[in-house]
Amino acid sequence: MIKLITTDMDGTLLDENSNLPESFTEVLNLIREKDVKLVIASGRPYATLQTNFGPMAKYLSYITDNGALVFHNNELIFKDVMSKDIVQDILKKAKTIDNTTVVLCGVECAYIENCSDEYLEEIKKYYVNYEVVDDLTKVNDDIIKVTICDLETSAKNSNTILEPLFEDKLNVVVAGPLWLDIMNKTVNKGTALKKIMDTLDIAKDEVMAFGDYYNDIEMLNQAEHSFVMKNAPEDMKQHAKYIAESNEDYGVLGAIMEHVILA
């Protein structure tokens, strides 16, 4: 029996306009009646997710910043802070890459330097709490993720430069067409999901997971009932047992209705 459902946001639960399905609240209420926990797993920060879900936010648990932070029952139960030296090393190299800008992610706030409106429009989609600073190297905060906004596409541009440099020390992952996330080696959505599973004493065969991109792989591996979205890159589809309908066709809610509500 399914006791926990976890889902990615962009390209998975949300449609192409980054909107929640209209029936989300109805389906959430139905799974809550069955005492099933819903965990949102995203590269987005906690403050943004709270805004995204509005009045329903209090009923959810969250894996944020691709696993660097975990919130359960509205409390922070896990964080994985990067060393200041490694953050400086990333900044030094990232600033040399064309067509990119860097976001430093703290627990409560993100930090950016002045950038063009094109970058700012993309950043504001995901970060509601951010501060513009003169120099990112002088930010004095616990940093849990460095993310690169890459208008040349992250897989072909920033990832080809940064992954070879840091893959031995850090988790460097393409988190979306325009985003590259860099975190501690121990950080991923799967590790974070296991924290919640252990807290609730939930086994792998009681977990359903949905994802569409490479930063979802470890999370999918933690779930016996794993789904990759039909709209995902083709090479992602080997990482799950099932294929869900696309995010445009509300595949997450459709699978939940079939396998949890109506089962």
Rank of each mutant, 00 (worst) to 15 (best):
M1E: 03
K3T: 06
K3S: 11
K3I: 06
I5F: 08
T6A: 14
D8C: 03
M9Y: 02
L14N: 00
N19K: 07
E22L: 03
S23D: 11
F24V: 06
F24M: 05
F24P: 02
T25S: 10
E26D: 11
L30F: 04
R32P: 02
E33V: 12
K34L: 13
D35E: 11
K37F: 14
K37M: 03
V39N: 08
A41K: 01
S42N: 04
P45G: 05
Y46L: 15
A47G: 04
T48C: 08
T48L: 03
F53A: 04
P55D: 09
P55F: 14
P55M: 15
M56C: 09
A57F: 04
K58I: 12
G67R: 01
A68S: 09
N73Q: 14
N73Y: 06
N73P: 11
N74K: 13
I77A: 12
F78Q: 09
K79V: 02
K79R: 14
M82Q: 00
D89A: 15
K93Y: 08
D98I: 11
N99F: 13
T100R: 11
V102F: 12
V102H: 10
E108P: 08
A110H: 07
A110F: 14
E113R: 10
C115N: 15
S116A: 14
D117L: 10
E121Q: 13
E121H: 07
E122K: 13
I123T: 13
K124A: 14
E131A: 07
E131K: 12
V132T: 14
V132Y: 10
V133A: 05
L136I: 02
N140P: 06
K145Q: 11
V146W: 00
I148S: 05
I148C: 03
I148H: 03
C149E: 13
D150W: 03
S154W: 06
A155L: 14
N157W: 05
N159P: 00
T160W: 01
I161D: 05
E163R: 05
P164D: 05
L165F: 10
F166Q: 06
E167N: 11
N171S: 14
V174T: 10
G176V: 02
M183P: 05
M183S: 13
N184F: 01
N184H: 01
K185I: 15
T186H: 09
T186N: 12
N188V: 04
N188M: 07
G190T: 01
G190N: 01
T199D: 15
T199W: 12
I202A: 04
K204R: 05
D205F: 04
D205N: 09
V207D: 00
V207G: 00
M208V: 02
M208C: 01
G211K: 01
Y213A: 06
N215M: 06
M219A: 04
M219H: 01
L220Q: 00
N221T: 09
Q222S: 09
A223V: 06
F227Q: 03
K230R: 09
A232I: 03
A232E: 03
M236E: 02
K241A: 14
Y242E: 12
I243K: 05
E245N: 11
E245S: 13
S246C: 06
E248L: 06
L253M: 02
L253V: 01
G254K: 11
I256E: 00
I256Y: 02
I256C: 04
M257K: 15
M257Q: 06
M257T: 09
H259K: 10
H259F: 07
L262S: 04
A263F: 15
A263M: 11
